[in-house]
Design a protein around this nucleic acid. Structure first.
Lengths: 338, 338
DNA sequence: ATGAAAGCGCTAACAG
DNA sequence: CTGTTAGCGCTTTCAT
C-alpha cells in the first residue's frame, strides 16, 4: 500500500496536521521537526494524494481541453502549448476530441465537471449556443481558444481573423494577382471577409471569382474538391486563399493534378502555419497563428480567473504573413513562354 | 454550490445510501423510489463527484499518456486512438509530452501517481531503464506503446519493426534498386536490421552504402542533413529508407534541393503513414503502422490488468507496405534519356 | 508551535 | 428493501 500522511505522522511522532504543514511550508513548525518529517517523507516515499486534497475543497490541478481532433496538427500544436503552460503552473490537461459534434462536446463537458476540473478550455466548434450558456453558468471557469462565439461571456484568445484575410489579400495583390478563389470552412467568415473586402477595396481587382465553403470531415479532400471546381472556371483564379493548411494541401494537390504548376501557374496562400505547410512542395506561403502564445494565454487567463474571478478577458493576437514558395508574381499566359 | 448526494437524499426523503444505489443501479430498491430519486437527480442537476468516489478507493477513471510530443503527428494519432478507446470505456486521458527527457518523464510519472491515475501508457523514450523498473514496482499498472524496452515487464503493444524493414527492402529490391541509404533514429535498430539483412540476403545487392543515425530534436532537419550526406557519396544510393515520416520529408526536400527528382532519380520509403506522408509531393511510399489498433489494444490491456492483474501481454502487430508515389523502378542513368 | 477534531462527498459493510 | 455508520486521505479551524 502507498504511504499515507498517517504513516508519516506516526513515524515522526507528530500529528497529521503537523506533517501537512511541514510539507507545504505552511504554519509554524520548529525547523528541527520540519527536517525530521521531511526526511521520513523521503524514506517512506510518501506522496500526498491529490484526490484527497482535492476533496477537501482545494483544486484538482487538472484542466480539460476540447478540440475537434487532437491528431489534427493545428490542434496538436495548440494542445502542446496548453500542456506546456499548464505543466509550468502545476496543472495537467485532459484531452477531449469532439469531432465538432455537439453530442460529444456535451458528454465531455459533463465528464469534466464530474471530475471537478479547475477549468475547461474550448477550442472546438459548438453549434448549439445554449450549450455554452448552460456551461458558463456552471461552476467551472471556461475559456475559448482559436474559436470565437460572440454570445459567450468567457475568456477568449483568438487571432485577428479579419487581418489574416487582409494580409493574404495584400500579399497576393502586390504580386499582381487579380483573380482570386477562396476556400474556407464555414466558421471562418472573418478571414473571408478580410480577404474579400481588401480585394474589393483595391479597386484594381475583380472580386473573388469564386468562394467555396466546405464542412469539416475530411479537410484535405474537401479543399481539393473545392480547388478543382474553382480551377475549372472559365476565367480561373490565378491565386487561391485557403482558410487552413489542411484544405490548402488539398488544393495544392488538385492544382498539380490539373497540370498547373505552383506558384508558376497559380499561387496559394494557406492559414495556420502548421507542420503541413512546411512539408508540402512547394512549402506553403501562409498566415501564421502564434499557437504557442495562444496556448499560454488561455491557460493564464483561466487560472487567473480562479484567483480573482475578475472580468472576462479577450485577447486578440496578430497573425503574420509568412512568405514561402507557393506564391509568386502573376505573369500573364502570353508572357510565360518568353 | 453544486448539489451533493445529501441534497438529493434530503429532497427525496431517503438516505444517501439509497440514492447512491439508485443511481448506480446497485442493491435493491423499489422501482417507485428509484423513479422518484432519479427525477430529483435530474431536477437538481446532480452529478456525482468522481473525486469523492475515487477517494473511497474506487478508480479515478483517468489514464496518463506519455509521448515525446503530442504535436508530432504520429503521436497525435496514437493519442487520438488511446483517447477514443478510453472514452468508450469511461476513461479520460491526461497528455504528457516528455520531449524524450528522462527528467520530464520522471516528473510526469510522479504527478500521475499523485493523481492516482488508473494506468500509465508509455509511448516515449526512456534512457534510464531503472526509471521504468521503479515504476513498474509501483502500484500503477503500466503499458508501453510503440516503443519497446525488453527489460520492462509490462504490457506492450508494438509493431514488428524488423518486418517493417524487410517490407521496405523487398519493395525496393523488386523495383531493381541495389544501392541503398538508411536514415534512422537511434532507437529503431530493428527496422534497420530488417532492412539490411534483407538486402544482404538478396545476394544481388550491395549492403547499404550508408547508414545515418540522428537524434530526436528536429527530425525533419536531421533527416534532411542525413540525406544530403548520403547523396554526396560517390556511389550514391538510388533508394533511401527512412525510419519515420518526419525524417523522410526532410530527406525528400534534401533530394530535391540537390536537383534530384523523386522517384525518377531516387526512391524513398518512409515509416509510419502519418498525414505527413500523405501531403508531401510525391506522396510517400511508406510502411504503415496501425495506430488506431495499437491505441485500442494498449488501453484494453491496461484496463484488463485492473481486473485480473494477470500476466503481462505483448502484442506485436504487422506493419504494411503502402505504395505511393515516392518509389519507382530503378533506371540506370544511361537509359534515362531514352 | 502543535494537536484534536470536523468535515469534503461518496461507497461499502452491516443492521434492521 | 432501506438506513446507519465507518472510513477514504487530506486540509483547516480552533484549542492548547
Amino acid at each position: 500500500m502507498k504511504a499515507t500522511i498517517y504513516d508519516v505522522a506516526r513515524e515522526a511522532g507528530v500529528s497529521i496536521a503537523t506533517v501537512s504543514n511541514a510539507i507545504r511550508g505552511k504554519g509554524k513548525i520548529s525547523p528541527k521537526k520540519r527536517e525530521e518529517i521531511l526526511e521520513i517523507v523521503e524514506r517512506l516515499q510518501y506522496q500526498p494524494s491529490m484526490i484527497a486534497s482535492a476533496l477537501t475543497g482545494k483544486r484538482t490541478y487538472t484542466l480539460g481541453l476540447l478540440v475537434p481532433d487532437i491528431s489534427n496538427p493545428f490542434f496538436g500544436e495548440i494542445a502542446r502549448a496548453v500542456e506546456e503552460r499548464g505543466q509550468q503552473l502545476g496543472y495537467s490537461v485532459i484531452i477531449c476530441s469532439t469531432d465538432n459534434k455537439d453530442e460529444r462536446v456535451e458528454r465531455y463537458i459533463s465528464l469534466l465537471e464530474q471530475k471537478s476540473v479547475d477549468g475547461i478550455i474550448i477550442g472546438t466548434g459548438i453549434s448549439d449556443a445554449s450549450l455554452l450558456e448552460r456551461l458558463s453558468s456552471r461552476s467551472v471557469p471556461v475559456a475559448m481558444i482559436a474559436r470565437d462565439l460572440p454570445s459567450a461571456d468567457v475568456h477568449k484568445v483568438v487571432i485577428d481573423d479579419y487581418l489574416g484575410g487582409v494580409l493574404a489579400a495584400r500579399h497576393l495583390l502586390e504580386l499582381g494577382h487579380r483573380r482570386f478563389g477562396v476556400i474556407s470552412e464555414k466558421h471562418n467568415r472573418e478571414r473571408i471577409r478580410g480577404f474579400c473586402e481588401t480585394v474589393e477595396r483595391s479597386g484594381q481587382a475583380l472580386s473573388p471569382c469564386g468562394i467555396r465553403i466546405f464542412g469539416d470531415d475530411d479537410q484535405i479532400q474537401d479543399g481539393g474538391r473545392a480547388a478543382a471546381e474553382l480551377l475549372e472556371l472559365e476565367a480561373r483564379p490565378t491565386a487561391l486563399f485557403c482558410c487552413n493548411d489542411m484544405s490548402a494541401t488539398g488544393a495544392l494537390r488538385a492544382a498539380k493534378a490539373r497540370g498547373l504548376a505552383v506558384p508558376r501557374d497559380i499561387s496559394i496562400v494557406s492559414f495556420d502555419n502548421t507542420i503541413l505547410s512546411e512539408v508540402c512542395d512547394p512549402p506553403m506561403t501562409t498566415i501564421a497563428q502564434p499557437m504557442e502564445e495562444m496556448g499560454r494565454l488561455v491557460v493564464d487567463a483561466l487560472l487567473q480567473e480562479l484567483g480573482d474571478g475578475g472580468a472576462k478577458q479577450r485577447f486578440v493576437l496578430q497573425p503574420e504573413l509568412l512568405v514561402r514558395g507557393s506564391t509568386a508574381a502573376f505573369v500573364p499566359e502570353e508572357q510565360k513562354n518568353a
